[in-house]
Design a protein around this nucleic acid. Structure first.
Lengths: 203, 203
DNA sequence: ACTCTAGTGATAGTTGCCCTCCGCTTGCTA
DNA sequence: TAGCAAGCGGAGGGCAACTATCACTAGAGT
């Protein structure tokens, strides 16, 4: 029975994490599609280097397209940021599948570490994201759908305290991901402390 | 001996947390001093409402002064943000004194809760702060000087795990403070989980 | 191979904000 | 109460976001 539930959960992750519909439609014509890709690639780079405030005109220049083409595909800076962000979230959601093969608590923690690592690296990007936007809310929903089963499994095994919801766990992890740490290893260490808190029985 | 150490620590907090020297000097002439206060008050309000990107011209308008007056007192947006921030940090540092009268772990945790509450409310402000600036580094130093003795006391009493430094604890707390939580009560709850992790023996 | 249309880059213009310069005003001090 | 420096407000230059227009080109469909 538990096996059946787990398989069901696995199946869900695949469908639930499909975020493709949130993306700006990729143009059909070959040259236009090439431009679309070039803009996204240049944006990813520019946002990583200069933060979410990177000049759009420079992104267009780096992509080898006119500024009008950039705006035609991504009408606002926000839409562009979202489209870069969605890709990262999809990667993390996929990782939840692998985590299912580990022991309950180990699986949850491994996935959370992965989440912190990926999202933490994209911190300046996420800072430029509108937290009320459909895309952001959908990304969150997808992440919860990916992590929820992992948490429940660990709680059923009594390896994680029962008085926390996936929303609490994700916000704790998000906070550590977006917090400022001079070295990645310190973020790791602090995350470990926080995860020890998740293992502690309440009281 | 321990008593002596504690008193020494208490004495230190008072001198070490003096951040006044980091502030922009308040002008001597009466009208100029009034403007200085009005600008800081308007800035605090505007940053709280609109975040650290609030237009400086609007702050000047709200303060009832010309834009030039604002720039004369606070040459860059960063300096203005810092001056608002310093006030908050001073309040939190003061609070460390009261915490000394509680039991070791309770005192540390009470102070950390206070820190998260205060700094969390100023999150958009802190986001606009340059983390390399002298003012920011001094604020951090002052906070460490205030919290360090509390942590050490709790560790000596074996009520908090010994394998964490004040830098770890503060960064964990900062992350939770700057994380996004729809309700203050959820932040409280998540902080509790993290603090449970601090109480857990390592391993 | 040919057409025709979706898509393109360039450019010029508007807006909003940052920041500086400059001539006027106001409050201290004697 | 008079002189004068400290302080003032607003005009204006600069920069980046975003919009609109247009002559053109490359690819999709026949």
């Amino acid at each position: 029975m538990i096996v059946a539930l787990r398989l069901l959960a696995l199946g869900d992750i695949g469908t639930v994490t499909a975020l493709t519909h949130l993306r700006v439609a990729r143009p059909h014509r070959a040259d236009a599609a090439r431009n679309y890709d070039a803009i996204l690639a240049a944006a990813r780079l520019a946002f990583a280097e200069q933060g979410a405030d990177a000049p759009l005109e420079e992104i267009a220049r780096r992509a080898g397209v006119g500024i009008a083409t950039l705006y035609r595909n991504f009408p606002t800076r926000e839409v562009l940021i979202e489209n870069v962000y969605i890709t990262e979230v999809e990667v993390v959601c996929e990782a939840a599948r692998e985590a299912e093969s580990l022991a309950p608590r180990a699986g949850l923690y491994a996935w959370l570490r992965r989440f912190v690592e990926y999202i933490g690296a994209k911190q300046p990007l996420a800072a430029g994201l509108n937290r009320e936007s459909t895309a952001y809310l959908e990304c969150r929903r997808a992440l919860y759908a990916a992590g929820g089963p992992l948490l429940e499994r660990a709680q059923r095994a009594r390896e994680v305290r029962a008085d926390v919801a996936i929303d609490d766990v994700m916000r704790l992890a998000s906070a550590i991901a977006s917090g400022h740490f001079p070295q990645a290893e310190q973020r790791e260490r602090v995350l470990t402390v926080a995860l020890d808190g998740l293992s502690t029985p309440p009281g």
